[in-house]
């Protein structure tokens, strides 16, 4: 790791708006050619971080570097090397897709001919050829996002910032967007991506940081994070509520943490290891004991789980009795 060059670096970023603290000492590092997923709920400070790193916003204190250049001291040099695609697709809706991309090319000073050629290439790559000469106003949400992302790639920048590139997209468009992002990474771009979806970070990122209240509360690979949050769990619903106690004893052998029981819904939640082995083992155990099951399945961790776990742990430490009650209930 130490031999790798750090392409994006933030150190102790602080930004406040009146009483509101948007960034409370946030630090991050993205090694060259890798993808960092910045995961967090709305208002966590993801967009503010991107705005600082992309020269849009000056932090109150802290340091930021992109491609070895000080963001605060030489913003224009940084702008030559970055591509930015935002949460609110910033395309000019009165211009056609082609005009949008040509305009961006000219503002990167590619020259008229190169700007035109590059726009045509990108329209092809992003499957916008048919709509190229229609005003962007007529585009669907997915098409606008693709056009916005294409705009970020006009000058083939080595560093890319994508702020919630798939928020609000339908599953198919989201899948298409993921494919596009994967191909960018395959071409060697360094990428910082913010998202509200753990799955998205899981699919695309080499490393993930979890951000809340303007600071990093967890970091690691997707697997590290899942182990940390212990979100992988087995959900079991028994048919006879009288069997809940026995089922709980049996399943303790596959559990990696406290089993929670909801008597009302006859529901057991069993934290378990990654993979399908715990599921197979649980079915074998329950079947062997003659306990009838109306539903059983593996549930992958969601961002909600991660957050509950990461932030809930803090709450539990402050109020241990309440945490106990949760588990016993």
């Amino acid at each position: 790791m130490s031999a790798m060059t750090t392409t994006v670096l933030a150190e102790d970023l602080v930004k406040t708006y009146g009483d509101v603290t948007a960034l409370a000492g946030l630090s991050l590092a993205v090694p060259e050619g890798s993808v960092l997923g910045v995961l967090g709920p709305n208002g966590a400070g993801k967009t503010t971080t991107v705005r600082v790193l992309t020269t849009l916003l000056r932090p109150d204190s802290g340091r930021a570097e992109v491609a070895g250049i000080d963001v605060l001291a030489e913003p224009r040099e940084v702008r030559r090397r970055i591509g930015v695609s935002g949460q609110y697709a910033a395309v000019d809706e009165y211009l056609t897709g082609r005009e949008n991309l040509e305009m961006v090319g000219r503002l990167y000073h590619l020259g008229g001919d190169s700007a035109r050629t590059r726009a045509a290439e990108l329209l092809e790559q992003f499957d916008l050829v048919d709509a190229a000469d229609r005003p962007a106003k007529t585009y669907s949400g997915g098409m606008r996002r693709r056009l916005d992302l294409a705009g970020a790639l006009v000058a083939r920048p080595p560093v890319l910032f994508l702020d919630e590139p798939t928020t609000g997209l339908d599953p198919r468009s989201r899948g298409d967007m993921w494919d596009v992002i994967r191909s960018l990474v395959a071409d060697g771009a360094t990428l910082l991506l913010t998202t509200q979806y753990l799955e998205e970070a899981d699919q695309l990122a080499d490393n993930i940081i979890v951000v809340d209240h303007g600071r990093v509360i967890a970091e690691g690979t997707a697997d590290d994070l899942k182990t940390m949050v212990g979100g992988e769990r087995l959900e079991v619903v028994v048919t006879d509520p009288a069997e809940l106690g026995r089922a709980r004893e049996l399943l303790a052998t596959v559990a990696t943490g406290e089993i929670t029981v909801d008597a009302h819904t006859r529901h057991l939640t069993v934290p378990c290891a990654v993979g399908t082995a715990p599921l197979v083992e649980a079915i074998r155990l329950l079947d062997g004991a003659g306990i009838e099951v109306s539903d059983i399945g593996l549930r992958r961790p969601t961002l909600d789980d991660a957050f509950l776990s990461l932030t809930g742990r803090e709450t539990a430490a402050e109020q241990p009795t309440e945490g106990e009650q949760e588990v016993v209930r």
Binding site: E77, R79, V84, Y88, A90, L107, Y108
Partner: peptide, 13 residues
Amino acid sequence: QKGIIDRFRTLPM
């Protein structure tokens, strides 16, 4: 409002 100024401000113009 539409984020177009954001786009311009991230360009080396």
